[in-house]
Design a protein around this nucleic acid. Structure first.
Lengths: 144, 144
DNA sequence: CCCTTTCATTTGCATATACAAATATAACAG
DNA sequence: CTGTTATATTTGTATATGCAAATGAAAGGG
């Protein structure tokens, strides 16, 4: 194996970005929610489990920047999937009924996605990889 | 552990995107090349190892879309780091002398980045994770 | 040699995402 | 109660990235 390949295989930044692109492609194929990209659906899920969650908390749970969350919520609100409620400095987010419906569909798609990559990568391997990524993110976030 | 956390930890799409965001942040802190984002540097490295590589081959090695490669090369050419040579349908890319210099600096930064995440995540863990991601990407690309 | 098909690159357009600056609101010190 | 400080959100702006359509160039059939 030559030097180039060594670097490409061992650089976590490179392998992680590449893998994220590939799995995003798979997710986009699997989730068919019109113009809703996969990441919006995770936001919907978090809100489902935490009605009246603050925007800040949402950012934290999704590991996204506040500005990104503003734009996500703008879009979801326009689509009538969530509602904003101002509360002092904070903004509280909840699902609408339509949002609840989308959530249910999302759970079905999520299962499809899971089956889809499990078939390609192996069920155990996928599970372990996901767990490793989760832990690694937690550690990085603590340090950054 | 509740249902939400289960999903967030076990969905490879979610954990992978999140981790990619986090490690990108670290990479951007480490690589200080003015307005050159990390991904450009990988392109420079590939070209370093394969002078006169075709654009198509570059896309393949980096797992990026052709349009993305066009824009990357536009920028690198403008910065005088690579040259384009048209050859029939194809375009051949090579490094300029300035590009070679940037490559050398990049290698130093790459080592820093490696040390940086190794310290947070552990050397072996990082290596294994990177290898897993590499293999998983290969498998996904074969299927998609 | 022209016409059609094929392949590589580019361009137009759209989206996710971030950072920094601006804004809005609350909290606190005196 | 007022001025300052701290915190949450939004807005302006920029970049990476992709898809689909357009372009350009070669290759092959007649």
């Amino acid at each position: 194996m030559n030097e180039e390949e060594q670097v490409l295989i061992h650089c976590l930044y490179f392998t992680a970005s590449r893998f994220a692109r590939n799995i995003t492609k798979l997710a986009e194929k699997t989730f068919d929610f019109g113009d809703l990209a996969p990441s919006y659906l995770y936001m919907i899920m978090i809100v489902k489990f935490h009605p009246e969650i603050t925007q800040k908390e949402l950012c934290h749970k999704l590991s996204i920047a506040p500005s990104t969350s503003t734009r996500f919520i703008d879009k979801l609100e326009k689509l009538n999937l969530v509602t904003r409620k101002m509360d002092g400095k904070q903004t509280l987010i909840s699902l609408t009924e339509e949002g609840e419906r989308v959530y249910l569909q999302f759970r079905v798609s999520l299962k499809e996605l899971f089956d889809s990559y499990s078939e390609i990568l192996g069920r155990e391997f996928s599970k372990d990889l996901s767990k490793s990524l989760h832990e690694a993110s937690d550690k990085l976030e603590r340090e950054l």
